[in-house]
Amino acid sequence: MSFSKCFSFFFLVTFSYGLHAQGLFRKKDSIVTKSLSETWELDEKDRNGTFRLNSYKPFYVLPAQWTNRINEMPQSVGAEPAFEEPLNLHSTEVKFQISFKTKLIQSFLFGKGDIWMGYTQTANWQVYNKQLSRPFRELNYEPELIINYPLDFKFLGFQAKMAGFAFNHQSNGRPDPISRSWNRVVFHFAMEKNNFQVYLKPWIRVDSSPEDDDNPEIDDYIGRAEATVIYRKNGHSLNLRMRNSLSFNENHGSVQFNYMYPIRNNLRGLIQVFSGYGENLIDYNHYQTTVGLGISFVEW
């Protein structure tokens, strides 16, 4: 059996089993759903010390992600196309993401603040593209240093749970003319109520000199802030992430919707829909709509 057929078979079996399992695995003790305090060790009872590896952002595999407009001629704003001829790319590829964090310092600010280190890696893989020898179309690396402080007050009917900021670097590790990278200071505020969690994240890009800027105007396309709303019930999870450039002239951004359904224990099926700019760094100024089907290993 060929490599692409193996992936297709894996996807069909997983997706079909997941739909069947929705009616079979609904027990609360089979679903690990964490509160903000448990995820970020905010309350004294949830603190686990330093240098323990924890999940961070979503950890998933999409054996099939389809796009309506594959970026065959990537180019930065104001630059020539990176290639003389369009790349022979497939509109369906594999996407996966891994993400971890660990606490470096605990209780450093008034006995409550923490410093975390996070790392996220996302891949777009042309695994079905035999003609081009199945290359990785894009790999994005995102290390960050996160300062977090617990909160406990009512805000707009929600319980405010934490705030802080992070020093964030994101790049694709590629040479010119397809090199992409930027640095940000990302502020965050999170709150929850019953089955809802809300994250608000505005950021400031650290200026890059024009001659060294691989992706000019990236914040005009990917955005300057994002809001994430998560709703969970009976092992099912709805996740809506919205990014916006906060510009009154040419307003850009994106919307990503994720639906997870229980398969067994902590394994979940995942449907992901994205529309807008910046699905990854090479596509930062490229508009597209994607639909992906796969599995998720960690609660969002």
Rank of each mutant, 00 (worst) to 15 (best):
D43G: 08
G269L: 01
A64Q: 01
L36W: 06
S2F: 04
D283Q: 10
Q65F: 01
V198C: 02
N215W: 03
S107I: 04
F136Y: 13
W300E: 11
L200S: 12
L89P: 05
F136Q: 01
L246A: 10
F10D: 00
H169A: 05
A21H: 14
S133E: 12
A227N: 02
Y221N: 07
V32K: 13
T39R: 15
M162Q: 15
K103G: 11
I204Y: 11
W40F: 15
S107V: 00
L270W: 02
S296L: 01
H188A: 07
W300I: 09
N88S: 14
E142M: 12
F9A: 00
I263M: 15
E144L: 10
M191L: 15
L293C: 01
H188T: 10
E299C: 08
N244S: 14
F3E: 02
I218R: 00
F59G: 03
E211F: 07
E250S: 13
F196P: 06
D114P: 02
I31T: 11
L53G: 01
Y221L: 05
N172G: 02
Y231G: 04
T50S: 10
H169L: 07
L145D: 03
D207F: 11
L267Y: 12
D220A: 11
P177L: 12
Q131N: 11
I146K: 01
F100V: 15
L62D: 00
I222Y: 06
K5W: 02
S247G: 09
Y277Q: 05
I282F: 07
T33Q: 14
E226D: 14
S37R: 10
P135E: 07
T67N: 06
E217K: 13
N194M: 06
K27A: 13
T122L: 09
S76G: 14
M162Y: 06
P150G: 06
L139C: 03
K103Y: 05
E250D: 15
P81D: 12
V298I: 15
L293Y: 01
K95I: 02
V94C: 04
N194Y: 15
N183T: 00
K201H: 05
A225W: 04
M162F: 08
L281F: 03
S254M: 04
F196K: 09
W40G: 03
G23I: 06
V255S: 03
F7E: 00
N265L: 13
I70K: 08
P175R: 11
E38F: 07
W66N: 05
D207S: 13
Q121F: 11
S296M: 08
T50A: 14
I147G: 00
M260V: 00
N280R: 02
I271K: 01
G235H: 06
A227M: 11
G49Q: 11
L104N: 04
N249S: 12
M162K: 10
A21I: 05
S76Q: 12
T120D: 05
Q288H: 12
L156R: 11
G173A: 07
R134Y: 12
H252D: 10
Q22T: 14
I31G: 05
H236D: 08
I146S: 08
A160K: 11
